[in-house]
Each structure stands twice: as structure tokens, then as C-alpha cells.
Amino acid sequence: MSFVVAKDLCRTFDLSDPWIVRKLTMRPKRLLQAVDRVNFSIERGTTYALVGESGSGKSTIANMVVGLLKPSAGSITIDGQNLGDASMSRPDQQRLRRRIQMVFQSPYASLNPRWKVGDILCEPMRAFKLIEGSEAQRRRAAELLEQVGLSDSDASKYPHEFSGGQRQRISIARALASQPEVIICDEPTSALDVSVQAQVLNLLKSLQKEFGLTYLFITHDLAVVSTMANKIGVLNQGVLVEEQDTEGLFSTPREDYTKMLISSAPKIEFGS
């Protein structure tokens, strides 16, 4: 069985007015089907990318896979364990949570501006009781910083002292602090400049090799996907319209929507 499996995943959002307003105006409930029966599975140690435009439901799926949102229907299993299992004890929940972490889109909002980088990195170790003792935690934080290409002296700085790319590295280090097996990357480079984007993508790749990480990559950028993913799912308005391995998707896209996405992506070529 695959490492991460999403089965018939659905999510509706209730966009209706408050009950009293609805009754007074006689309007029905307004429901938005953000994700509609999506199925995919990710093998251990590979990267699966969900590609879609705004409103495609890709971020909703990311939030469900990490457990920030509950699916309306369907299930997500990680290494055979159902994420929505209500009978799970709290220690078991924590054990499962530790294995799934996330790297967020915004390098500015994803780090608490009042916390020092060292404290940001030590928090997951404490929450999951991975490393006891503040001295050992400091050492581990320094090690993490070096793994993502920063220096151990950066631990005593605040997030605002770093550039966007460096903050994204810190965000990656925080995810690694939990020693996860799956990392969900939600548009991790879309706020970064091209030259920095390449650094972050390369870092993610080399970490995957080193730790055998499994990635779920959420993005709107086909170019990023082509360098990162083994397998790609294309989302359109909550529905998974096509799924292929990377090579197949770019050489023989089956759906018109995919073809349109590929053809409209800006390319550097000289015959326009």
C-alpha cells in the first residue's frame, strides 16, 4: 500500500449568511464544493504535485492532509493509519502528527515575528518530546540550521533579520525539527525571486534524498512542478482531472485543461 492515500476526499464550505439572516431573507444555504471526490496516492520517498489555478481546491487538500481541516467525506491514510480516526488517543495523535509537517507559502507570515529562530526550531522538539534538555535542543537547532544552509549563530536572531529565501529555509528547518516523513509544501517558492527559488527547490530535493522524505507539492507553477515531481495531479475546480507521471504529462497531456495550462505557461523562447 502507498504511503499516503487520499480516498474519495470531499470538502464543502458553508458560505451561507447567519441563520437568522437566512430565515429573514428566505435564501437557501450556500455551499461551496471546494474538493470533490479526489483520489491520489503517494509512494514513500517520492514527490507528488497537485497543480491548479486559484480556486482549484489545492490548498484545501493540503490543509486536510496535514489535519488542519477535516474532510467532509472520504479519508486520508498515512502509512496505514487513518488521519480522521476519532478513537485515536492523544499520544497516538501526537505520534501521527509528528510524521506530517508542512512548509508554507508566505515566508513572512509563517514565522512568529516575536520569537527567536532558535526558539521556533526548538518548539516542535519540545511538543513531540523528541529531545530533552535545552542544551541538546540548542545543539539540534544549530544542526538543523546548517542542514538548510544557514549558520548556527542565526539561532539568536529574529525572523525579520532574514531575507525571504532565508526565512523559507528556516520554515523548512522547523518542519525538519519534528523528524517528519511527509512534508506538504504549499507553494513554498511562489513568493520568492527566481534566483532564490532555485536555491530553495534544490534544498528541498537534496533533503529528500538525504532523509527519504515524501513530498506533497502544491503549486500553480508548472515549471516548478516539472523539476520537482515524480507524479502530477491536475486539479480544476475541486476535481482531479488528470494524473500522470511527470514525463507523460508534459509529453502527452490527455485533458484539454492540462493542454491549456501547459501552453499558456510563459516560456523563455525566442520566436514570439
Binding site: 531575507s163 529565501g165 532565508q166 527566481v194 534566483s195 532564490v196 527559488q197 532555485a198 536555491q199 527547490l201 534544490n202 530535493k205 508548472l222 515549471a223 516548478v224 516539472s226 523539476t227 520537482m228 515531481a229 515524480n230 511527470t246 514525463e247 504529462l249 508534459f250 509529453s251 501547459i262 505557461a265 516560456k267 523563455i268
Partner: peptide, 22 residues
């Protein structure tokens, strides 16, 4: 130019060119 990933499957698996620093 070199660090901009292109939309095809050719670049998969290889490292992107990166300019060091910021």
C-alpha cells in the same frame, strides 16, 4: 536564465542552476 525552470519534463531529477546568496 539558468535558474528559471522550464515547462517540460527534461529538467526533472537534475539540480537547478542556482545563484548563491541573495
Amino acid at each position: 536564465m539558468a535558474s528559471t525552470p522550464s515547462v517540460d519534463a527534461k529538467s526533472f531529477g537534475s539540480e537547478l542552476f542556482q545563484i548563491p546568496g541573495a
